[in-house]
Amino acid sequence: MTDILEGLRQAFLLIIGLDADLVEITLRSLQVTLSAVFIASLIALPLGAWLAIRRFPFRRAVIAVLNALMGLPPVVVGLFVYILLSRSGPFGVFGLLFTPTAMIIAQVIIITPLIASIAHQSIRDLWAEYHDLLLSLNTTKWQRIKTLIWDARRALLTASLAGFGRAIGEVGAIMIVGGNIDHATRVLTTAIALETGKGDFALALGLGFVLIALAIIVNLLIHGISRTERRGRW
């Protein structure tokens, strides 16, 4: 019990004192995750809108596969990206393995289905309301997609924040493609695993508190946006 309390005390001092390692790891985590969320949103939001308004053969099957990919095992994604970026892989010439770029690629693959699925559900409901109006105005499919994305922007922001929440806590794929290299690819989750294994519970707890704080902030944002969205509909 004494060791735990001492670890908590040291962790608190690290956070209050803005420990250099703690700050560096936190900033790198935010850089990687925010980049991944931005790229994934650029892909997933138009995809979700397109699936909501477009009718084509096997559309239901595509949506079912997209929903299934929400539970894609991160370690499998990490292995897949590792093979692609390794020296013997098709993209090995770019030297991206064990870099933040490789970590971003893995996170994009993991969270794109999640964001796209939530976006599809939100825009599908909105499309039911706007269908007749947009058709009567003789809009193109791209104009419909832009209109739906803009009017569903709060719900879509919630989708992106959900992707952020999943990406910031990811460890398996990040460990495989990033390598947990100090001052290069070490992020909150991989650092917590490393410091715990080394017995440095103070730093591990400090990193854990920061990670929990980020998760709480994201969930509060999602809750606030959801309430705002509901009021807007009323």
Rank of each mutant, 00 (worst) to 15 (best):
L47W: 03
F58N: 07
T33L: 07
R28W: 07
L47N: 03
L34C: 12
L69M: 15
L30C: 14
F38G: 13
I25M: 13
L79W: 02
L84C: 11
V65G: 01
V77I: 03
V81L: 12
R59H: 05
I104R: 06
V108Y: 00
R87G: 02
I118C: 12
G89T: 06
S88V: 06
I25N: 09
L47R: 01
I63W: 10
V108D: 02
L79H: 05
L66E: 01
F98W: 08
A40N: 14
I63Y: 06
P57Q: 03
L66M: 08
Y82K: 00
P74Y: 05
V81F: 04
S35A: 14
V62L: 15
I53D: 10
R55W: 00
F58Q: 11
S88C: 01
F91P: 07
H120P: 06
S88Y: 03
A119Y: 13
L96S: 01
T99L: 08
A61V: 07
S117Q: 14
L85S: 02
A116R: 04
V65E: 01
A61E: 04
G89Y: 00
G71Y: 09
V77E: 02
T99P: 09
P57E: 08
L97M: 10
P46H: 07
V37M: 14
V37N: 10
V75F: 15
F98T: 02
F58P: 00
L47H: 01
P113G: 09
L42K: 07
R87H: 06
Q107N: 08
F98Q: 09
L84V: 06
Y82W: 05
R28K: 05
F58H: 05
V65Y: 00
T101M: 05
V108G: 01
V75R: 01
F38K: 12
V81Y: 07
P100L: 12
T112N: 03
V77Y: 02
Y82F: 10
A119G: 13
I109S: 08
A40I: 14
A36W: 06
L27S: 09
I104K: 03
L27Q: 12
L72E: 13
S117M: 14
S86K: 04
V75T: 10
L66Y: 05
A44D: 04
V32H: 07
V37S: 14
S29K: 03
A106C: 10
S29G: 08
V108S: 00
A52R: 15
L85R: 05
L85M: 02
P57C: 04
V75D: 00
L72Q: 13
L47Q: 04
F80K: 09
I105K: 00
I111D: 10
L45S: 15
L114N: 05
S117D: 15
L79A: 06
R54V: 14
L30P: 08
I105D: 03
L27Y: 10
S88W: 02
L72M: 15
Y82I: 00
